[in-house]
Nucleic acid binder design. Structure first.
Lengths: 212, 212
DNA sequence: GTCTATAGAAGGATAGAC
DNA sequence: GTCTATCCTTCTATAGAC
């Protein structure tokens, strides 16, 4: 019955994932998870001992999944511009399939910041930066991306892709009211965002701006 | 003792605000709020009947506060460029003083989307757009901001300012690891963001881009 | 491995004295 | 208006039968 064990454990894990993402750690009920999996509460504890254990399993799996989506950008043998375009297309498509994932991850992280160390200890940011520098030294110069402003740039890229999902209720609420469609907006964003980013960091016509 | 009543009720409200923003509706405990206010649980119910009532009072106050921060942009007799600069300076400064507010509002909205109607019913988006069009018809043309892409533009502006606070645990976690400082990052962002936005929407040098 | 029944604790809410 | 004491429900977790 090892086959069956696996199935039950997986069923529990999948149900837990759905419920936790939907209601958060504090709002989720073990009964909801059991019902959703078609079993009883006792079995949850048989497989995962406590709610905390179960939550941690779900959280780490999902957080890992989300951040892995950033990785291909560094491996691909794409031009700098194509990397940007590739990222937005892939990342927004992924989030369309998991629209509540960013809010779940970021909210639970802000409630329990101690989880972060575990999350980023396997993430060697300096190595990634070096890789990018090696691959695109000229592009980085061309676009004026330096060690000083790389955080500004990276967070702007992430913001352009993730924010629509974090603010989905408001955005789609407002859009609905004035005749726009949120799904179309997301499709457009896959090309709008990379164009927006690349123009923002291009070095030309700086003198045209009246910024002080 | 009406003076005293007011004080107690306010003390409760302020404590509730702090606890709810810190722990969310589901994570907050009436006992925590009472302790924080230096009173006992029964008094909470005397003033606000239920946890739901108390939460709603806090939520509506805070949500209103946050969205009101967007308003001055439309009133000011500023140039279009100055409006953008003004917005980021004021909004980021406000969020620096209330760093957990965006996560609180957006997360509770995504848990209870029915709250949205009440929030935006007083917000006449089309009127605002008309106002902006009247004030800056030439600028909107110059920057190619049209009825078609206004949602893309507006959400990009919001994203640039709000996202750093939503993702603060990750951003500051990563930054700490590689020797950057989150507070400095925020200060820089007040000028980085408007420059970024204005360059992104400027019409020149479009031909230089290799976008397909 | 899976179930029913229940322990044990916690949380929201109320009664009633002052 | 404020307090103590307590009710009642809900929730996590476990015991024990099958």
């Amino acid at each position: 019955m090892t086959e069956n064990d696996k199935l039950t454990e997986e069923k529990i894990f999948e149900s837990a994932t759905e419920i936790f993402i939907e209601k958060g750690m504090d709002g989720a009920r073990m009964k909801d998870i059991a019902d959703h999996a078609g079993i009883n509460k006792a079995l949850l504890h048989y497989y995962y001992r406590t709610k905390d254990h179960l939550f941690n399993a779900v959280f780490e799996k999902m957080a890992g999944l989300m951040f892995k989506k950033f990785a291909p950008v560094f491996d691909e043998r794409l031009s700098f511009e194509d990397k940007i375009k590739f990222f937005f297309r892939e990342h927004i498509t992924f989030l369309q399939q998991n629209p509540r994932l960013p809010a779940f991850i970021l909210y639970e992280l802000s409630r329990h910041p101690e989880r972060i160390k575990k999350l980023i200890q396997n993430l060697d940011v300096e190595k990634l930066w070096e890789t990018l520098e090696k691959q695109h030294e000229k592009d980085l110069k061309k676009y004026n991306i330096t060690k000083e402003n790389i955080p500004q740039f990276m967070t702007s890229v992430a913001a352009m892709s993730v924010f629509p999902f974090l603010a989905k209720p408001i955005i789609s609420g407002v859009m609905e009211k004035i005749g726009y469609n949120f799904d179309e907006y997301l499709e457009q964003r896959k090309s709008y965002a990379p164009e927006f980013i690349l123009k923002a960091i291009s070095k030309t016509n700086r003198d045209e701006l009246t910024l002080t």
